[in-house]
Structure formats: structure tokens, C-alpha cells
Design a protein around this nucleic acid. Structure first.
Length: 712
DNA sequence: CTAGGGTTAG
């Protein structure tokens, strides 16, 4: 067999500096002498250039010239590992009678870098069996493998071994990763002991402990360690600043946050991406989204993490539209979204119930291979559910080989929102078989669904399971669901009795009772519940509104006016009702009596016609939903211009002549009773399905009926 | 060896 020309192995640029190889163009086809220095030089170059092909060629060359290549096995391994092929390295490794400890440890850390912790641990164990003494490099990487595999005992044993060989307390590398290991298991006591055992602490060790504390909700401790660190004159680095700011954000400790911002600028880390990203997150958690944006705008080349962070900040500040346009800018700036980005952006879509956008991201996830990520999946389930497409949510959910708690909760919520209480209960009864332990959120979702669908007996059964099956003490939220369920089923006395068992009822609970009183016109109990809410929060405007609604529905206009005056005096700004609809890739927003839409005239004309047609089908404006005392005619007018009616009119207008059979509108508050009746009739008039998502759930109107069965 | 961003429920 012809030998490979050496020129291809050794680039001309490098061999000029390695005269001992003596490669001359005339010598290129002659086999070289079996000189280990020659191969060492070559392998060093291969490692430096990280070239897998070159390394393979060198090994082949060794075999062809009969050179005992295993004598340079450690070199070969190192070259293969530098060029990224653990498997090639492993082949050499397995052939060697006695690989060097350095080879063992670099094999182990390479496996870990490639997320092959299983193989790393296996190698570590053989090392121990063969009575080899692992070095500091082995120890500093192996703990990561144990925490990846959730093998606490394995890691603890390795900790013991590191102590035995005298490598723990004296070595910051080993100790830092040990601190991280213990923190991954929530064992902060042990982490702290390891940390304290090190005499010569450094930045990395301290940072590891800070991170450990923040990941386990011990944010105060994290800030304390940061202080200790500064007192010992250890300079914080970009990692440290990035980590300690998380603690400030979690605690909403703006004072510390601003101090640290100053320290970052002073120590020259002001333009480093990790501290900047953490800073902007911190500001948003402290409610200062403008400052987040300022920091973000100061980042020269935001990477995926920074973009994701700012999208998340905008989402949490309820600036969803801006969050979406940030996502678009990210794409325009050719920064590739990852699973974090997609799940965050999907959350934005879920929040605005943007079905099409959600599907686009779903498509992107499938193309880019991110659709298997469980965060992406549960965000998709959530988004589809909140868009009223629970079938799609189910499809995504079923793609999970092992469903997890979050996606299950999202799916349950999806069915609950679209009023399919039976499926919710079926899923709930299946959780055990799926190997999932329900948590408090599961119960909130299930009970809420029962309440939404008026499933009294099922609700009671599920509620009692909280005590017997899971001994999850019900929280106020669970009680609120039950009070709502009992109250809406007309069992107000029972609801009241249940409420009396709650140790510390919160205002949500009392307001739920108040809501139930409203449905059944129970004025006395309503007044009592309202008083309770106001004792807890005198500024709760929702209560005033509910109360005035009750008076209004009973026709007691004097009381209504009194409350309205009171509210006005107190200077509340009621969240205005807003409805919106997605037409031609644009969000069109409407407020009551809104004249601002460019097609305003056409919309009002359409609305008038629809009202006339529905009146033909028996629509009678129900003025008890109007809060002011007005002339009957005016009451009607103000009803007619409710935001959801305008949105429906616009939807009808813009879907005319198009093939789509569904009009979907959204409202930030709950749909009003009069509009609810009216939209039912509209669906009959236009012969199309109308979906309305309000603050609590979906209403699917078809042929004069609504999926909620008028129960909401 | 250490780092920044993520899903449900309220």
C-alpha cells in the first residue's frame, strides 16, 4: 500500500519551524524513520490545530510504518480529545495496557463536556477498582457527572476519596466543584462545610457557593457570602457579579442591586455580557423595566441569552407586544433562538392567546430540533390551551414519551378553560398511571375546571383527595375554587361553612364568595363578604364594582350611585375593558365607545345591522349590566358600544367573503352578560363560530349556543 | 472548578 504523503500531515507553515523532522520536498514519498520525537511533534501540532483528520492520518501512518503507536498512546489520546473525538480517543485508551492518569482524567472530563456523564462515571469507577489515584483534574470534573446523573451517594463517596488522597481542602478546584455538587442536591450545609474547609479561598469557590444559595432560594445568604468575599479582599469577577445579582433580583433588593451595578462599572465589567444580562433581569424583577431596557440597549452585541432575558422581562412586565417585537428583532439580527428563547416567546403568545404566532414558533421548533425540549413542549401545550385549541395542545402533549407535571398541568388547564370538565377529571384520574404526582397547581386547575363546568360532585371528590391521597394541605386558592363551585351551584350556606374552616382567609377567597352572591342576588351575604374583603384590603376596587353590580341587578340605583361616588372619591382607576382581535397579522384593539379605529364608521354600521338582526331573533338588551342610572335608551346605547361588541362587529366585517369559519376575539376582563347573549345570537345570524377568550376562560359560540352552557 | 436567560398554577 502506498503511504500517504507526509506533506498532507504536516502543514508547510508548521514544519518550517520543526527542523529536526527534516522534511524536504524530495523526501515526501519516502517513509520517515521510526522516530518518536517526529510523531510527538506531529501529534502536538494536531492537538494544537484540533484537527481530527490530521490525527487520524498520523495514527494510520504510525501503523503503516510499523511504529508502536501505543507507546505514544497518551499523546494520541490528547490529540483526539483536543480534536473533539472521545470515541477515537477511547479506542486508543482501551488498547493501552496502562494509560497515564492524565489520560484517564482527560477522558473523564471530555465525556462530561459532551454530556456523557454515564461513561465518565463508569471510567471513574474503573479507576478506583484499578487502584489508581485520581488527580485533582479528575475530581474537579467528576462531581458534575454525579450531579447530572442525580447520583448523590456516588458523589459523596467520591468526596470521601478526594479527602483520602488529600485533594479536597487544599485544592480550590476540587472544592469549588464539590460546593456546586452539594448545592445541586440542595445540601447547602455540606456545601458550606466544604467551603469553610478551604483556607485559601478564591473567586471561583465563593462564586460557586453564591450560585448554590441563589439556586436554592437562599438569596440573603448569597449576598452575605458576596460580602464575606469582598471583606477577604477577593476580587469579584464577571461570574460573581452575574450570580449575586440574581439574589438581589429575587429579593427585589434594589439597594444592593444598584450598589453592585456601581461596583461592576468600577471594576471594569460594565461591558461584559453576563453581568449586563443579570443586571437587566434584576431591574425588571425590581419593577424597573425601563432600566432593564437601558441596560439592554447598552449591550453591543446581545447574544441569545441577553435577547431571551429581555423578552422575558417584557413579558413579566406585561408588555407583551414589545416582547414579541424584541423576538422579531432578534431574528432580524441573526441571533439564533434556543429552547429558552422559544419557551419564553411561547409564553408571550400564551399570554396574548396568539394562535398563529404560537404555531409559527412550533414550526420553528420542529425545524431546528428544539421541539423535543420539555420546556418548549410544556410552553406549547400551555399556548395552544390558552388559544382555545386544546386539541393541538393534546397532540403536543401526546408527543411526550414521559409526560411531566408542568405539561400535564398546562393540558388540564387547557381543557378547563374550554369548559371540558369531564376530560379534566379523566386526566386527573390518570396522573398516577402516568407516574406523575399531582401538586397544588394541579389541584387548583382541576378544582377550577370543576367550578367552571359546574361539576359539584366531582369537585368534592377531588377536593377530599387532597387530604387522603396526597395530604397536600389545601391553600386559600383551593378553598377559593371550592367556594366558587359551591357558591355557583347555589349552595351558599355550604360555601360559607367551608370558608369558616379556613384559618387565614385572604381577600381572593372572600371575593369569590362575593362573586357567588352576585350570581344568586344574595345581598346580605354579599355585604358581609365585601366588608371582609375591605378589611383586608380597603383599596380593593373590584369589590366595590361587584357590590355595585349586585345593587344594579336588583335595581337599587341609589346604592349604585353611592358606591360609584365613593369609588370616584377614592380615586380608583378601573382597569378599562379592552377587547382585541387578530386580523391580517395585526392586533386591533377596542375600548367601549372607541372611535379611534380607521374603519370606525364601517364598524359602527356593521354593529348597528347586527343588533337589528339579532333583535329579530329575540335579542333584548339587558340593562341590568349597566352601572349608571340612565334613561333606558342611553343604557341601551352604552351596552351597544361595549368593546367586545365592537370587536365582534369588526371580526364579522373583515371575515365577510372569506373562507374562515371562526372569528376569535379576546377581552381582558370577563365577558358581560348582555354581550354573551348577544354574541350567541350573532353566531346564529352569521352562521359562523365565534370564540371569545375572556379573563377566565373560552366561550365558543355556535348556532345560538355557547360552550360554557351559560355557566361562567 | 464558578456565570447570565426558560414552562404550569396563584
Amino acid at each position: 500500500m502506498r503511504l500517504l504523503p507526509l506533506r498532507t500531515i504536516c502543514s508547510s507553515r508548521t514544519y518550517a519551524f520543526t527542523p529536526e523532522v527534516q522534511l524536504t520536498p524530495t523526501a515526501k514519498d519516502r517513509p520517515p524513520p521510526a522516530n518518536s520525537n517526529f510523531y510527538i511533534t506531529l501529534l502536538n501540532q494536531c492537538a494544537a490545530e484540533k484537527s481530527l483528520t490530521q490525527t487520524r492520518r498520523v495514527q494510520l501512518h504510525m501503523k503503516q510504518t510499523g511504529f508502536p503507536h501505543l507507546s505514544l498512546g497518551n499523546k494520541l489520546i490528547s490529540a483526539y480529545l483536543s480534536s473533539g473525538s472521545v470515541d477515537d480517543a477511547r479506542n486508543v485508551f482501551d488498547d493501552m495496557p496502562q494509560p497515564h492518569v492524565v489520560s484517564w482524567s482527560s477522558m473523564i472530563s471530555s465525556y462530561i463536556r459532551q454530556e456523557r456523564s454515564q461513561e465518565a462515571v463508569a471510567l471513574y469507577k474503573s479507576m478506583i477498582i484499578e487502584n489508581l489515584v485520581p488527580d485533582e483534574f479528575t475530581f474537579s470534573s467528576i462531581f458534575r457527572a454525579f450531579s447530572d446523573l442525580r447520583l448523590f451517594n456516588g458523589g459523596r463517596t467520591a468526596h470521601g476519596q478526594s479527602v483520602v488522597v488529600g485533594l479536597q481542602a487544599g485544592n480550590v478546584y476540587v472544592s469549588s466543584s464539590l460546593v456546586d455538587f452539594y448545592a445541586q442536591f440542595g445540601r447547602l450545609g455540606e456545601a458550606r462545610i466544604v467551603y469553610d474547609s478551604v483556607k485559601a479561598k478564591d473567586v471561583v469557590l465563593s462564586t460557586a457557593l453564591i450560585v448554590g444559595y441563589t439556586k436554592n432560594g437562599e438569596d440573603r445568604q448569597a449576598i452575605e457570602v458576596f460580602g464575606e468575599m469582598l471583606n477577604s479582599y477577593i476580587q469579584a469577577n464577571d461570574f460573581t457579579f452575574a450570580s449575586v445579582l440574581i439574589a438581589c433580583g429575587n429579593l427585589k433588593d434594589l439597594t444592593s442591586g444598584i450598589l453592585i451595578h456601581g461596583a461592576i462599572l468600577k471594576s471594569g465589567f460594565g461591558s461584559w455580557i453576563a453581568p449586563q444580562t443579570s443586571l437587566l433581569s434584576m431591574y425588571s424583577k425590581c419593577g424597573l423595566i425601563e432600566d432593564s431596557l437601558k441596560v439592554f440597549n447598552g449591550i453591543l452585541n446581545p447574544n441569545t441569552v441577553a435577547w431571551t432575558a429581555i423578552i422575558g422581562c417584557l413579558l413579566h412586565s406585561h408588555r407583551e407586544e414589545e416582547a414579541l417585537s424584541m423576538f422579531r428583532s432578534m431574528i432580524l439580527n441573526s441571533v439564533a433562538p434556543n429552547a429558552f428563547t422559544l419557551s419564553t416567546t411561547l409564553s408571550v403568545c400564551a399570554s396574548l392567546a396568539l394562535f398563529e404566532q404560537g404555531m409559527l414558533i412550533h414550526a420553528y421548533a420542529l425545524k431546528s430540533g428544539l421541539a423535543a425540549n420539555r420546556f418548549v413542549i410544556s410552553a406549547l401545550v400551555d399556548t395552544y390551551g390558552k388559544c382555545g385549541h386544546v386539541g393541538m395542545a393534546r397532540m403536543v402533549f401526546d408527543s411526550l414519551s414521559a409526560p411531566d407535571l408542568v405539561s400535564l398541568n398546562s393540558l388540564i388547564n387547557g381543557y378547563g378553560q374550554s369548559g371540558n370538565g369531564e376530560e379534566v377529571v379523566r386526566l386527573f384520574d390518570m396522573t398516577k398511571r402516568l407516574g406523575i404526582e399531582p401538586n397544588d397547581a394541579t389541584y387548583v386547575n382541576v378544582l377550577f375546571a370543576c367550578s367552571n363546568s359546574g361539576m359539584l360532585e366531582e369537585g368534592r371528590r377531588v377536593f377530599s383527595l387532597m387530604f387522603t391521597d396526597h395530604s397536600l394541605g389545601p391553600s386559600n386558592d383551593h378553598y377559593a375554587c371550592m367556594v366558587g363551585l359551591l357558591g355557583r351551584s347555589g349552595r351558599l350556606e355550604e360555601a360559607e361553612e367551608l370558608l369558616s374552616k379556613v384559618q387565614k382567609p385572604d381577600k381572593v377567597l372572600w371575593r369569590t364568595l362575593l362573586g357567588a352572591c352576585k350570581i344568586h342576588g344574595k345581598l346580605e351575604m354579599a355585604k358581609w363578604a365585601a366588608r371582609k374583603v375591605l378589611e383586608l384590603d380597603p383599596g380593593d376596587e373590584g369589590t366595590y364594582i361587584l357590590l355595585s353590580n349586585i345593587y344594579a341587578s336588583l335595581g337599587k340605583w341609589k346604592e349604585v350611585i353611592n358606591i360609584k361616588c365613593l369609588v370616584r372619591e377614592m380615586g380608583f382607576k378601573k382597569d378599562p375593558a379592552v377587547s382585541w382581535i387578530y386580523v391580517n397579522k395585526k392586533i386591533h384593539t377596542f375600548m367601549a365607545g372607541d372611535q379611534s379605529h380607521p374603519d370606525g364608521e364601517l364598524i359602527y354600521k356593521e354593529l348597528e345591522e347586527l343588533i337589528e338582526k339579532t333583535k329579530g331573533l329575540g335579542y333584548v338588551p339587558d340593562t341590568s349590566f349597566v352601572l349608571q342610572q340612565m334613561e333606558e335608551f342611553e343604557m341601551e346605547r352604552s351596552l351597544f358600544y361595549h368593546s367586545e361588541k365592537l370587536a365582534v362587529a369588526f371580526g364579522v366585517l373583515s371575515s365577510r367573503g372569506k373562507t374562515c369559519n371562526t372569528i376569535t376575539i379576546f377581552k381582558n376582563l370577563r365577558v358581560c352578560g348582555d354581550c354573551h347573549n348577544w354574541i350567541k345570537l350573532v353566531s346564529k345570524v352569521i352562521g359562523k363560530e365565534i370564540i371569545a377568550r375572556d379573563a377566565k376562560r373560552f366561550h365558543k359560540y355556535r348556532d345560538g349556543l355557547c360552550s360554557c352552557g351559560d355557566y361562567w
